[in-house]
Nucleic acid binder design. Sequence first.
DNA 1: AGGAAGATCTACT
DNA 2: GTAGATCTTCCTA
Length: 193
Amino acid sequence: MKTLTRDFYTRDPVEVAKDLLNKKIVRRLGHDVLSGKIVETEAYVENDIASKTLRRRKVFGHLADVECGRAFIYMVHGNWLLNAIAHPRRSVGGVLIRAVEPLEGVEVMRKNRNAVNLANLTNLTNGPGKLTKALAIAGDLNGVDLTDRRSYLMITDEKKQVFEIASSHRIGVARDLPQPLRFFIKGNKFVSK
DNA sequence: AGGAAGATCTACT
DNA sequence: GTAGATCTTCCTA
């Protein structure tokens, strides 16, 4: 398996958000390997007025200092959210991973999300806060290099596959930009509701 | 020092 | 569909 390169992330976040669909996120956890296919993303762009959180935290200033292809992880509403830093040179931006389809390590994921009714798999990782919990992703992983196969968290390339990309407005954003910035694999069961 | 609000989730009706 | 839990940062005093 091969990780996505720095160049992959050094582009318009909207393009990166679309291209991250169907890629694989890999989490090394002790002796276990947890992985899932990315099925839903959201782009956050330069001068993004939509997110109060981003502006309040001066995240864009922060993102500008951070290398593309690194993870940016922070907490909202008591949930950790996972972003990949992605923007053209001298710009700022990122991509929020909103949902994945579980592949390897499903039993460990179940354990990580204990106390929850997990009768069906779709409830395991179909939301930004759910997938971080299932994959044991928290603030201690902030800044890890997603392009480095030695990292505890990385994103790998996958064989080309035919699928249809659907888009919509972003979710949970108080005042969204006019253009659709949320992308997901059409018809996939693991997309959030 | 205290309160409000946010890129959310669960459990309940 | 709505309420309450959750935790961190920002704003006001």
